[in-house]
Design a protein around this nucleic acid. Structure first.
Lengths: 353, 353
DNA sequence: TTGAAAGCGCTAACAC
DNA sequence: GTGTTAGCGCTTTCAA
């Protein structure tokens, strides 16, 4: 066993051998460390023979480059920060899946920061990013570091590329990846109209949310196009959670005349609403149609199965990661990508009686 | 602007200044870099005055230590690997949340590796971990690197501490964090028995799965304790997914005499099963009671709301992270932690007619 | 309690 | 196409 290594506390495996370093590979392959490095980074600049010897030596030693050393020298971290408002929200899991697979394929690792409503945590990651401790970041939280959602406050001095995913960040000069929320909401409302619904309630998201603003516009677009009156009474506030869907359902039941359809701007709210209506003896969809938004996992398993707007979540994650990687490689990249949504017709929507 | 920094490509912020280094802080605080380092790592070994000056300098410069340099020197990465079989599975999101918050509080970052059924990916992360590129790992995938689920194969030569979460890894000499699956399954089965059910079907998980083996034992324990016969016919194979729940429902409907209760070993299967029964005109719970396992987000929102076993997912994540951190700090740590489950009574279970 | 200085493992500039 | 070598920013030993 290598005394120096032992004294210095270098990582060793169970057999007591320290982890292989580039020197070990170089010695075994009978080349310099520079050639080993090049064989990995720019194989085309190394002779075939040398490359083969290096690869064989790597296989024999189980060498894995030390990311810390590599990062320190190259001033790149090969890490991307993904900023989420709430990791426990299941809406994000498929998106993360899409991000992760794309980053992995390009040699990047993913650090997840769940802000969890903590300003301290947000400040930490802002400083972390500002200090160049990641090569880039994907923001799913709807605002830049240092700013609030409405664009108030001075954005932090970040130099690494950023990408906004799902929730667009108005005014920020960074690529935005998402869906056309306005068009999607319009599409759903028009579908309800086409079935003959004339009084269509709207359960909103949080007022400050960009998604909400867009979806609300789409709803009004469709009403206007159909010459249907907009009734403020039919707009019920929500915040995308199941609980507000339940509350919206209670509000509705207490009314004299029910609308024939309700467009909920999230599936969770739709499911909560349906449950409340059903429990109160109001049948969905025969008495009231209910539409959702997102197409989460359980939309199809809900009872009745939810008619909703499908968001391509995995693809959204992939697209955001791809744009970021393009940016990091100096490749030109779209500054706005809108993926297609689909109206998924299931059982919670029917023509009015 | 610093010409050297510019030439070397050091990270700079928008104003063209490079990110602060320990040297900058030391100069400003009029101490050596060693003192700055100590002020951060071992504040008690630095004089009060020096510490105050250093902290002030850090605040002024916005200094964030370079993790690469720190890691290279200290041979610690401050990164923990979390190995998941499938990131898109929503069961994991709350667990990840618990892991992340605990790691963050202890100064560790979290790298997520979604194996996604790819042996290449698994090999990559195995080598990564073996080479000491993370300080530890939390395994949620039910096996060690290099082994299959049934313990076949030689485990990879990993030296960093590992922890198994949720799916215990039989034979592995690492701490195991989870729930008592056998007791929980027994508890649910006993509850069904206590209501008067005598023919209780069981929808299983994958046969090779440790969780499945334990839950099946618990089911049989309860039958035996109640002197109820075990009928092989009433065991329906599943794999925890919604689809197999639907398939189980179809199988059940095709039979002459339905059981009065069905214990599904996952909520997803229970939801799929309920849907299939309901669509076929079989009422849940009046004709057949259905129980689940896990208490996922939508268990409460299902129709009827699901009676199930609650797993404290966030706490499970926290506990696993805590054990790993203890291990990393050389503190003694339990080698087996079983968190309490709770039987949540909702509407999908009732006494038989 | 403090400072000087070595060196972690790698990449890239430079020389040949 | 390949080797030599400086140095990335930090922690830690050693000496004072």
């Amino acid at each position: 066993m290598d005394d120096v290594a032992a004294r210095k506390g270098r990582s060793k495996n169970r057999a007591g051998e320290r982890a292989a370093r580039i020197q070990d590979v170089a010695r075994l392959a009978e080349v310099s460390t520079a050639t080993v490095s090049r064989a990995l980074a720019t194989p085309e600049r190394v002779s075939k023979e040398a490359r083969a010897r290096v690869l064989a030596a790597i296989a024999r030693t189980g060498y894995v480059p030390n990311p810390a050393a590599r990062s320190l020298r190259s001033q790149k971290t090969n890490m991307i920060l993904v900023v989420l408002p709430d990791l426990a929200n299941t809406f994000f899991s498929k998106i993360l899946h899409g991000i992760e697979e794309t980053l992995f394929a390009a040699g990047y690792g993913m650090i997840i920061s769940d802000l969890d409503g903590s300003p301290a945590k947000e400040a930490h990651f802002a400083a972390f990013t500002a200090a160049g401790r990641v090569d880039g970041a994907i923001l799913l939280n709807g605002h830049l570091f240092g700013q609030s959602r409405d664009g108030k406050g001075k954005p932090a001095n970040i130099t690494v590329p950023l990408v906004a995913l799902c929730e667009a960040i108005p005014g920020a000069d960074i690529p935005q990846i998402g869906i056309d929320n306005r068009a999607a909401a319009r599409k759903m409302t028009e579908f309800l109209v086409s079935l003959g619904h004339k009084r269509i309630a709207y359960v909103s998201g949080p007022a400050a949310n960009v998604l909400e603003k867009e979806r609300f516009r789409g709803y009004r677009d469709a009403l206007r196009a159909a010459n249907l009156p907009f009734e403020q009474d039919l707009v019920i506030p929500g915040d995308y959670t199941l609980e507000t869907g339940v509350a919206a359902g209670r509000q509705l039941i207490a009314r004299a005349n029910l609308p024939t359809a309700v467009f909920c701007t999230s599936d969770e709210m739709a499911i909560g609403l349906i449950r409340t209506l059903t429990l109160a003896g109001v049948n969905v969809p025969t008495e009231v149609s209910v539409a959702g938004f997102d197409d989460i996992e359980f939309a199809a398993a809900a009872e009745p199965a939810l008619t909703t707007i499908h968001q391509p979540r995995r693809e959204l994650g992939q697209a955001a990661a791809k744009v970021l990687i393009d940016l990091l490689n100096g490749r030109p990249s779209a500054d706005r990508i809108l993926l297609e949504t689909a109206l998924v017709k299931r059982d919670s929507v029917a023509p009015p009686r």
